[in-house]
Design a protein around this nucleic acid. Structure first.
Length: 490
RNA sequence: CGGGGUGUAGCGCAGUCCGGUUAGCGUAUCUGCUUUGGGAGCAGAGGGUCGCAGGUUCGAAUCCUGCCACCCCGACCA
């Protein structure tokens, strides 16, 4: 295990993987493309989960749970949906094993073949809409605003810890509405919730927009998304909210009696974020010393490290440290007192930095004499000595400062790496360095496809808040009304 | 699924071309002493079906055949 980790762009993926593993977040599992989320990583996910859940409830949603297995036939109901997901599904064909006839191990019992294969959900639209059909008869049954916390499986060709694993954890909201406007409003509301969460809690700035037809979710009429820029200059889709129109209602025959007494199909939305957000968090803030966690999502806010030579000294330090710890905890901070006597302070410093703990307090004999403690912040690595009675206030201020600072830093990075160009030549040059590019596009699938083939860049989104501006498509020179966001992406 | 690469101690690797002592190094682990304000030092100890299965040979980590797994780059994707 080497001591340093480098975030140089050319070995960014190794850096990322190494960081995830060393910072004790996750491991590769024995199952291809899956990961083991370790307790520390899971604690971060739980923090994210808790906050998102709060935000969903505040916007009127409730949680429910639907089956892991989906009958194959459900999938073929919505044509574009099956096209989008069929290639990457895990399929259950049998329900029993038996001892092999040669006595060596266990084989699948070929007599136990399922009449209809079951798909391990890659997303739950189909099984949920099949259920909603029974739940919805009248406008009085609407809206249905349900969220599910679940795992899904997508048999991806290539995987990377947190960013794209075969199995991943996520939440998926599935709502049903009586009219188009309400469903559209819900779609927008949820992308706003996501953007809020990612910016205010994860401290990662995002760009809100809609996907082009080519990048749209399979079966959606419109896909809203938030896009973030990682430190290697690649874009990461951090969350999506889909306006599904009446497509799934038609496919699953979900009609309702309207106020006016007519029969109409239900309007749908779905929206989700996943453990991929962990990937975004890691890549957006980390440095060569390891993870940098925003205080609002850090499982441990403060670590207290004692510095001492003899056991008696430690006993004296404890008398100072325990009341301090208690006082910090009363303020609502999660505090770890690292009293291990098996490793030296320097080792502990490095380890807690690797794990991204926002604030470290060191207390040693020198402090005992002066009535001080040393406070170090993870984001800037600055250290300061302060009187012990001021420590609690100091730390409390520091937490807000750190939260703001890492957001500002990420914002500045994005600003410095967002470009605007009207020349295809320059467009290609910028892509080599990485970053977001705002450029004109003629609005056709063909142009988008050709740009992707020639440059590996995709249209991340058509940003919501970009002003209209007449221009010419960067590739074809045809007229364009608005710049769109291009980037290479994960 | 296409291209490239790698499987040797918990982790990271050397040895393989050119077969030949008891398979080695770093790190981690354990014990002891000294250390402790930025990843400690010394001494000692434990830990291996050399990815799997065949074959060639007096002798295989090394050569041959087949298989498997993983990683990277592409295509695909949250």
């Amino acid at each position: 295990m080497s001591k340093g980790i480098t975030s140089r762009a050319e070995n960014y993926s190794q850096w990322y993987n190494e960081l995830v593993i060393k910072a004790d977040l996750a491991d590769n599992s024995a199952v291809r493309g899956c990961m083991v989320i370790k307790p520390y990583g899971y604690a971060v996910w739980e923090k994210m989960q808790a906050q998102l859940d709060r935000m969903f409830k505040e916007t009127g949603h409730v949680n429910a749970y639907f089956p892991l297995f989906i009958p194959k036939s459900f999938f073929s109901r919505e044509a574009s949906h099956v096209e989008g997901f069929a290639k990457e599904c895990a399929v259950v064909t049998h329900y029993r094993l038996k001892n092999s006839s040669d006595g060596k191990g266990i084989v699948v019992d070929s007599d136990a073949r399922l009449e209809e294969e079951l798909i391990v959900r890659p997303t739950s639209e189909t099984i949920i809409w099949n259920t909603y059909k029974d739940w919805i008869q009248s406008y009085r049954d609407l809206p249905i605003l349900i969220n599910q916390w679940a795992n899904v499986v997508r048999w991806e060709m290539r995987t990377r810890l947190f960013l794209r694993t075969a199995e991943f954890l996520w939440q998926e909201g599935h709502t049903a509405h009586a009219d188009r406007e309400e469903a559209l409003a819900e779609t927008v509301k949820m992308i706003d919730v996501y953007a809020d969460f990612v910016e205010k809690y994860m401290a990662v700035p995002v760009i809100k927009g809609v996907k082009t037809e080519k990048e749209r979710f399979a079966g959606a009429l419109e896909t809203y998304c938030i896009e973030a820029l990682m430190q290697d200059g690649k874009a990461l889709q951090a969350g999506t909210s889909h306006f599904l129109g009446q497509n799934f209602a038609r496919a699953f025959d979900v009609k309702f009696a309207t106020r006016e007494g007519t029969l109409d199909y239900v309007w749908a939305t779905s929206w989700g974020v996943s453990t991929r957000l962990m990937g975004a968090l890691i890549m957006a803030h980390s440095d060569d010393r390891g993870l940098v966690l925003p205080p609002k999502l850090a499982p441990i806010h403060i670590v207290i490290v004692p510095v001492y030579q003899k056991t008696e000294q430690m006993a004296r330090l404890v008398e100072t440290i325990l009341p301090l710890k208690k006082e910090l905890e009363d303020k609502g901070w999660t505090v770890k007192f690292d009293d291990r006597d098996t490793v030296k302070p320097g080792f502990k410093f490095a380890e807690h930095e690797l794990k991204g703990i926002p604030v470290r307090i060191a207390v040693g004999p020198r402090d005992m004499e002066n009535g001080t403690v040393e406070i170090a912040r993870r984001d800037t690595l600055e250290k300061q000595t302060c009187p012990i009675e001021e420590a609690v206030n100091k730390v409390t201020c520091l937490m807000d400062e750190i939260q703001e600072n890492i957001f500002r830093k990420a914002q500045e990075f994005r600003k410095a790496n967002t470009f605007q160009t009207d020349s295809y030549e320059e467009f290609r040059e910028i892509l080599e360095k990485g970053g977001f590019i705002m450029a004109h596009w003629d609005g056709t699938n063909e142009t988008e496809e050709r740009i992707k083939e020639e440059t590996k860049a995709t249209i991340r989104c058509i940003p919501l808040d970009t002003p209209e501006e007449n221009g010419k498509c960067i590739l074809t020179g045809k007229p364009s009304r608005q710049r769109v966001l291009f980037a290479r992406s994960y």
